[in-house]
């Protein structure tokens, strides 16, 4: 067999094996390597590289080596899934760097982090003053996660004691001018609805680069032609404005009528509409 042909065959077959092994080990491998997986990954890579180039090495040896290096981390991962103490050994535990606003120097030393590195990690999180931090922990993957002191955290709805409100995730239903049928059915909308919405926006589907439907069933479109301004969904803010107008109208009617009973009816209507405004406002503001 020609040399180049053999190299090619070996390379292709190891490429396939590596592909299968990475699929088995799973997504975790890419995002958060434990030290163990890191070593195993490098070794598997070099075995594959070595064997696909060096034709004097028997291919079976490489198979065995790769399978061992692939299986052992897999097994370790499986045991770690079941046992907390084993997980601590293989993957390590997080180290607390800051607690109650105080830096733990011993832990910094243990993890071989200098104060500058820790400050730089904090700055990456947008924190420039250590005294704002209530708690900071160095995760096993080397990232620093922080909990700010309560009065330094961003304001939330619950801080203001506002009514809880929930929004579902938007669905991307048009990409590159093409309809994604699966996503459309997942969003619970129909093709007829989409055609209607596109007509309202004054565009055809071929001109849409990206189309997303939000929690309120409104369609946002981005067009290929950036000069064109499609009509943005305005229904909800418009409805809020209209409701306010109706409440004011009712109050005006109540003032201008002489009949007591009618006056009362108008006043009740105004109160009802105002109640609706209060309740629906969080959902109607953009």
């Amino acid at each position: 067999m020609a040399q180049w042909l053999e190299v090619m065959l070996r390379s292709v077959s190891f490429l396939l094996i590596l592909f299968i092994i990475t699929k088995i080990i799973g997504k975790r491998q890419i995002s958060q390597l434990s030290f163990f997986e890191y070593i195993a990954g490098i070794t598997i890579g070099s075995i594959a590289a070595e064997v696909s180039m060096a034709r004097d090495r028997p291919i079976l040896d490489a198979f065995v080596a790769i399978i061992v290096w692939g299986l052992v981390p897999l097994l370790a991962g499986y045991i770690a899934l079941k046992s907390k103490s084993f997980r601590g050994i293989v993957e390590g535990n997080g180290a607390v760097f800051i607690k109650d606003g105080k830096i733990f120097e011993e832990n910094l030393k243990k993890e071989k982090y200098t104060i500058d590195e820790m400050l730089s990690l904090l700055r990456k999180k947008g924190i420039f003053s250590v005294q704002d931090v209530e708690y900071a922990i160095l995760e096993q993957d080397g990232s620093l996660n922080t909990l700010l002191k309560k009065d330094k955290r961003p304001l939330t709805r619950s801080d203001l004691q506002l009514m809880p409100i929930n929004e579902k995730e938007p669905h991307t239903i048009i990409m590159d001018g093409r309809l994604l049928v699966d996503a459309l059915s997942k969003s619970g909308k129909t093709k007829e609805w989409l055609n209607e919405e596109l007509e309202v926006a004054g565009v055809t589907i071929e001109n849409v680069f990206l189309g997303q439907v939000n929690s309120y069933g409104e369609l946002y479109v981005d067009l290929y032609d950036d000069q064109l301004q499609p009509a943005a969904p305005q229904e909800r803010p418009l409805l809020l404005a209209n409701l306010k107008k109706f409440a004011a109208d009712m109050e005006a009617f109540a003032l201008s009528t002489d009949c007591q009973e009618t006056k009362k009816m108008y006043e009740k209507n105004a109160a009802d509409i105002n109640k609706v405004i209060q309740q629906a406002k969080p959902y109607l503001l953009n």
Partner: peptide, 19 residues
């Protein structure tokens, strides 16, 4: 009808009844 969040659906429905 078009909202996907059940809470929002109910709130809109109640508002509709009041109106």
């Amino acid at each position: 009808l078009l909202s996907s969040d059940p809470d929002a659906q109910q709130l809109f429905h109640e508002s509709m009844l009041t109106i």
